[in-house]
Write a protein that binds this DNA or RNA. Sequence first.
DNA 1: ACCGTGACTGGCA
DNA 2: ATGCCAGCCACGG
Length: 121
Amino acid sequence: MPRLSIKSKKQVSKKASNDSFFEEVFNVVRKIPDGKVTSYGAIAEYLGTRLSARMVGWAMNAAHRVHPPVPAHRVLNRNGMLTGKHHFFHPTLMQELLENEGHEIVDDQIVNFEKVFWKPK
DNA sequence: ACCGTGACTGGCA
DNA sequence: ATGCCAGCCACGG
């Protein structure tokens, strides 16, 4: 049978450890100050898994369905590029959100990345 | 259980 | 500068 419309209730099927990792990622992203951005690697490093920035991206993949909301648009790659734009409702939404927070984006890359970079600590 | 994939990153050719 | 490769680890088929 086809999967029912929306996943009714699935949250106890994951291990606590996994949830902790995702939760920590979300928690850090939610701490990003308004008008600031960070990178997947910075978050991974903060969590102690510097070489696992991919897991941060994986967590972001599920960020849209968690509560409270996670400002995933403030997470860019190491170059300040909006690599995750295609995972938003609209490919331009990520850029619009950043511009709305005072940033300037040129060719999918944020301007003055170093000056608006925020590192968790 | 194995394999491919991914919103990444650093290193080396 | 550009591009490929390996390491990371969770998930779906």
